[in-house]
């Protein structure tokens, strides 16, 4: 899906847990996530801390979107 969207020219950041799979399928901007069933969360934390974890990942994703890349890059 990442490639299907990105070939239009719209930049895509892929947030995912299993980075090697993302590299294999060909995402260009990759941000590692927490775990497969909760990529942007952590149920072991309290709600506020969990949201902080999520915010950090989203902030990294925005950095990825504002960074020029010429090849596959893991942020």
């Amino acid at each position: 899906m990442v490639k299907g969207i990105e070939k239009s020219g719209i930049p895509v950041v892929h947030i995912c847990t299993v980075v090697p799979i993302s590299l294999t399928v060909g995402a260009n901007r990759i941000v590692p996530a927490v775990a497969i069933p909760y990529p942007l969360g952590d149920p072991t934390l309290d709600a506020l801390e969990e949201k902080n974890v999520r915010r950090k990942i989203v902030e990294k994703a925005l950095v990825a979107l504002t960074t020029e890349v010429s090849e596959q890059t893991v942020f």
Partner: peptide
Amino acid sequence: SSLAFAEELTETLIADKVDAVILTST
């Protein structure tokens, strides 16, 4: 199939002037 989904929805994203996409996978 994934590619076909992406191509179709991207047409709408372009028409609606979307600048960037955050795609999350589990």
